[in-house]
Design a protein around this nucleic acid. Sequence first.
DNA 1: ACCTGAACACCGTTCAAGT
DNA 2: ACCTGAACACCGTTCAAGT
Lengths: 226, 226
Amino acid sequence: MSQPGKDTKSQRRQPLERRVIAEKALELIDSDGLETLSMRRLGTALGVEAMTLYHHFRNKAELLDGVLELLVEEMEVGLVESDPPLKRLRRVFENIRQIAIRHPSAYVLVATRRFRTIATLEFYERLLQTFREAGFNAEASARYFRVLAGFVNGAGLAEVGSRGLQPDATAIILEDFSDSENFPRVTEVVPHLRVTKLDRIFAFGLDLIFSAMEMELRGLGQTACE
Amino acid sequence: MSQPGKDTKSQRRQPLERRVIAEKALELIDSDGLETLSMRRLGTALGVEAMTLYHHFRNKAELLDGVLELLVEEMEVGLVESDPPLKRLRRVFENIRQIAIRHPSAYVLVATRRFRTIATLEFYERLLQTFREAGFNAEASARYFRVLAGFVNGAGLAEVGSRGLQPDATAIILEDFSDSENFPRVTEVVPHLRVTKLDRIFAFGLDLIFSAMEMELRGLGQTACE
DNA sequence: ACCTGAACACCGTTCAAGT
DNA sequence: ACCTGAACACCGTTCAAGT
């Protein structure tokens, strides 16, 4: 993922610049929200004219892809190469949820943008390689990848929501909701959905999926319990 | 959900207007994408000055909540009251995925906005009531609601992505991706993630979760198979 | 009660011009 | 090669004014 050396500061400056710009953009999103990020504000924060940014990114969409790449990097932190494949896979999906917690305002980029840059494709490649090492063929890899990614993305967005950080928070704050007269069911369930309970629920969901994966690897179908 | 009568056209015009505006907004989102919806364009489409809309919605966020309410209505279509609770629940979550397919550009509203209007809270109330009728207590309802909603939302966004309709489609189109030299794993998995395969994968994921629900209702823990 | 038009403070992006 | 500043065609929203 890196070949150091032959990298004098003046020579390889462009990729470095891109990264510095994307990092500042992520910083601004973290502090002020995704909605308020603009090329003009980002330029100002970097002490540069807004239009200068277009020299490094073709447009705002490409800049956001740059921010996404920073988040994707975080998906592989702490991976232990010697760990069994299923354990490494679980770690990746737990990391993705952590991104939702650490970068709630930026997480929507993970959930809604497709991964179509080289760096993000390389991440997919390594991830799918791990599925294969676990013993899944292409079909099963696709299936569990989709199920896991779907679940984790939805869980991540819920995490963002529970922290009250999605666009334009107003009116009812669900966390403290209480109206047992008109909404008895909502009122009794809300305490079980507080931010502090989401850890356990997320683990429960992952357990569900990873149990199915283990069973399938052992040659038992999903309904083997019946 | 409706008490007709005492509803002369002139008397109850405001709520009707709101709905007409929201419906036109959804129409514009469906045809041109969420990004390009603006108060000005919506006004023009309705043959009215943009600023008139502010008489019916306090701001754009409230308008988007109005659009969300239209989508939430679609989540309960085709529900058969006499069906067993688990079957009704499954139907709701299948409907949610159908919304992602029918309104791909609008679906991000479902996935990223919190439900905080009266109408959406009423939907939650009915949904959680169904969990209770199935036999779940508040804790289990919260847990399976979160897991199901997470999975379905993530799956919905994937559905949107696979249809190439998220913000600013460029560069690599994953559906036709092929580069077995540099990305062998991605290349072999991509055919299994085509739009035509997502039906089966979605059903597989739902089966996983609903099997766990059935087992828990029968008093068997999640790991009862071991 | 409902709608308008001008105005304010912003956007993303293009382009010709500077060094 | 890199940056700038003016300009274009937009935004959401406020507000005083119209009927």
